[in-house]
Each structure stands twice: as structure tokens, then as C-alpha cells.
Design a protein around this nucleic acid. Sequence first.
DNA 1: CATCTGATG
DNA 2: CATCAGATG
Lengths: 306, 306
Amino acid sequence: TKAKRPPQKRKAEAHSEEEPKPKLKARVSISETIKDTDFSTSSKSPSGKAPNFKIASWNINGIRAWLDKDGLSYLKAEKPDVLCVQELKCDKSKIPAEVEVEGYTGHWLSGDTEGYSGVGMYYKTKPIKITEGIGIPKHDDEGRCITVEFDKFYLVNTYIPNSGRKLVRLKYRTEQWDVAFRDYLKSLDAKKPVVWCGDLNVAHQEIDIKNPKTNKRNAGFTQEERDSFSETLEAGFIDSFRELHPDEEDAYTFWTYMMNCRAKNVGWRLDYFVVSKRFKEHICESLIRSKVMGSDHCPIVLELAL
Amino acid sequence: TKAKRPPQKRKAEAHSEEEPKPKLKARVSISETIKDTDFSTSSKSPSGKAPNFKIASWNINGIRAWLDKDGLSYLKAEKPDVLCVQELKCDKSKIPAEVEVEGYTGHWLSGDTEGYSGVGMYYKTKPIKITEGIGIPKHDDEGRCITVEFDKFYLVNTYIPNSGRKLVRLKYRTEQWDVAFRDYLKSLDAKKPVVWCGDLNVAHQEIDIKNPKTNKRNAGFTQEERDSFSETLEAGFIDSFRELHPDEEDAYTFWTYMMNCRAKNVGWRLDYFVVSKRFKEHICESLIRSKVMGSDHCPIVLELAL
DNA sequence: CATCTGATG
DNA sequence: CATCAGATG
């Protein structure tokens, strides 16, 4: 029977002195892990065209921690036309100034809960339009979706709700969010082709997870989530990585920090580039940057010939 | 207007895998800072006797963090007969096994609030008796006092309540705790001489703090706390450090982690060895180990000739 | 295991 | 600035 802490108020200073000063953390650098990846490309579209537009996506697990770890070295090495990031875990107003990168514009979206969710992106060339959310207030208060309209396609960057431990949010996720989001995707697809990317928080098939048997009732591999994702794909979309690499095993984008799973490659493929079927002809390559460290997810890349 | 987090339960595992494994943190080592201190002694008691009993005291600001930083290297270098520590910030049941040291017995006391307060000690030779608290339940639920009875004296190890930001606990501290504790000390002193040590959370006089002017209404330097400490001393005790070093300035035992105060020696003397007046003849030296790092307080040492 | 908030000092 | 707890993933 544990007691409460002593009575508390706010905003005073015990043993004060003068003024607080900003802090500077020293962390292990992401830059070191960049060297193990070859960022050059030789891919071609089905009709033989070389890529001229590259999109990257990464669940960065906290933008402040990621910046401290020099996460921007990835952006500078990959040099994509757009980088989509998920899980900012930081209110828009609290993002450090070091987030700015020469040659890119950043766009950040946070939800109502401090330190929870949030997505953002860096882009080189100004899109036609940027939209936050999916247009349904009750689904838009967690900062999970940004859509940018380009000339030839829509790019939708999402951090799909996690069903949670004990699957407390499974019904919300599959019966509410996924349904509403599917409608949203379809409405975009009716206008222009769509590239939908991000942390979709589902491993689609058994090939997309190391331990399918033991994870059937864990968030991200329930039948409900997998079926829901199938239903979205059936509405006219393809999973670009699996389309190009139908039999590739052990291809994951997430590894829990626990139990040394990354070193053992005990992972999940939770991050995707899903594209409108009719846009398939523009896809040159769909890649997983599994050697880039700095988060419990790794970046993924889509190379397009527009 | 910030929203709440999503609904939560306990004890399940999202994206689980197998079993969790214990963790191992890498921190800056305290051992490095030990080298700057000379732990030998040449002190003598008023009657010319060399010390044969050494007591050290240190507010360690979290025993788990302190162990990770190799705090025990201080114990091994100082080699006191007793080391008193304050602010365990750890339930007794959660103290790591590495706390054990060859040649010493540990005794740990935690309060009802997880991660808050708590005191403990290492001793070489078994005391006659060990008592937890001051015998008043309403003052004893925060794990702030251990008394050990030796042949020639009582040793009282305390972490005196902080009056808090905005002085929310000043009345409790001075009108309740200090009054009850003073009675407790007097009752011991009636039986045997007393050595009272620990983090007393008060800088007694202007000489005991770098910025007396600006801290008059901050916890640890209010007139109420200073007067209360004076009143306790007047009951028959002496501040051993100030007794031996009446004019020594810039002698502090605490520096806020903020604003680089330690490097600038902008500090407070909050840690003391207070001893019964009639025990004065046994005091050889009262020292401040200001170069030993690892906490926002530094260790203090009392050398006795028994 | 690692991030965050918020309490405490 | 640095510890801790507890939530979240």
C-alpha cells in the first residue's frame, strides 16, 4: 500500500540560483550506421525507365531523440525527394530548431496528446496541396495522417493506430479507423493515383513476420488487422515491396528493442509503400534500409519513374 | 486543451517475442573522480589521539543510478567504518544485488512512496542495535531516519524533509518534523552521545551558501529552517565542520545540477555531522570530499578518536 | 529496450 | 540537470 508523493504545486524553484540553460545530450550517432548502406540505384521501371523521384519513410520513434542521434545524416545520405516520418512524440511547438535542413521544407503534425504519435515530412519541391488528417475530427486528433498532392499522384503519410497491449484498441483500429481511412484512400484514388506509406502497424502475411505462430493474438498480427489490410489492398492497391519481391523472406522493418531482436533479425514488416494498381508501371524499386539504425524501425524507400 | 492517452490496461505484451532480459547500462564512472582525492589522514583529536573510527555520509541521489556509475568505488577508496547514504529513491525490494560489498553489511530503509526518499548505510562491525524511524508513525512513513547504537555513541542517519518548491512543506518541515526530531535527538543524547549526520536540507548561515541574498525564500535557506536548526544545536550539539573551520568560505556539499553550478562552485552546505557537545573531544576532523562526483551532493567525512 | 510526460529535488 | 515512476510501443 504505497502512499502518494508530498503535496505539490508548480513553477517555483527550490535551491534555485540564476537562469536555466539549454541542454546538450551526447548520444551514439546514426551517421556511423549510414556507411553500411549503398544509396546508389540501378533500378528501372517495367518499361525500362530509370527512377527520377524517390520517397523514403521511417518511424523515427521520437524526433527529439532522433535529432540527438544525428538522424538527419540519413536524410542527407539518402537524399530522397520526400522523407515521411512517423512517431514524432513531440508537440509541433517543441520540435528543436536543428530540425531544419538546407534544401528541404519540413511539415509537422502533432495530435492532442503530448509526446504521443505525430507525423511529418521533408520535401524538396513544393507540393500542390498539403492536407492534415482524413477529414473526420474524431479520427484526426492524434496527428496520424498528412496527404500531399503532387502533379501525378497523392502521397499519404500515416502512422496507423497500434491495437495496443491486450488489444484494447483492436476494435477502434479495425472497425473504425481502418474503415474510415479506406474510404479516404478510395476517395483520393478516384481523383489521382495514390502512394500510401508509413508505419501501417500490421504484418500482412506469415512471410512478413519471424514468429507468425506465437504472435497471432498480438497487436499487428491479428487476423482482424491482416484481413482489414487485405480489404484495403483489394480496393485497388498493391503492396509494392511484396509485389516486387514475392518470395523474399526475413525482410522486416521493425524489431522490438527487447531481447536483442534486431541482431537476431526477429522482426516484423510493418512499414509499407502501398500504391494504386494503375500506378504500378512507375515503380522502379521498393527497398528496406535494414542496416540504418536509430529507431526500432528502419527506413524504407520507393523509387519511381514519373 | 490536451487529450488523454488511449485506454490502457496492464501486463500484456505488444509485438512481444520471447522473454525479457535484464539490462546493463553504460555510464560515466565515479571511479575516475576518486583519483583526485587524498584519502589518507594526519588529523588528531584535541588531546592528540589519531582517529580510529571514520564515518562518511553522502546523498547519492538514487542508489540504482549511483551503482551504475560505480558509486561503490568511493566506499572502497574511503574505507570508512560506516557509510551513511540518503535519497535511495528505490524500494528496499528493488535494490540491485550489486549493492553488496565484501567486508560491509548494508542496511536499507525505504518509505511508502516508490522512488522517493529512503536512507541506508554500510557498516563494518555490527552495531549494538539498529532502529528505523523516530518512533512517530506519521513521521516515519517516508524512510528518512536510521539510528545505530554503538558502544560509545549513537549514530543517526537522516534525510531531512525538503521544504519544496513554493515552500509547500515548510510548515511541516519546521513545525512538525524538526520539533519531533529534536525531541528524538534529545532523548538519545540523554542516554549516550550522539553523532547526527546526513542531508539536513538547510544551509545554516550566510557563509554556508554562495548566494545568501537571493535564496532567503528558497527551500533550505529560509529563516524558519535556519532558526530551527539553531534551536536544535542549542539543545547541546555542535556543527562539527563549522566548529573546526569557523571561517572557511566556499565550503559546500550541494550544487544544483542546473546552470553548471558545481563547476562554478555555486553551492550550499546542506550535509553535516552534528555531534553532542560533550563528544567534541573525540573529533579529529570533519571533511568535505568536494571532488568526488556522482551526485548533486558530495560526500562528507567525520574522523573520530574513540 | 527506449521513448515520452510529469513529479521531485 | 538528473533522478525516479508509469505509460506506450
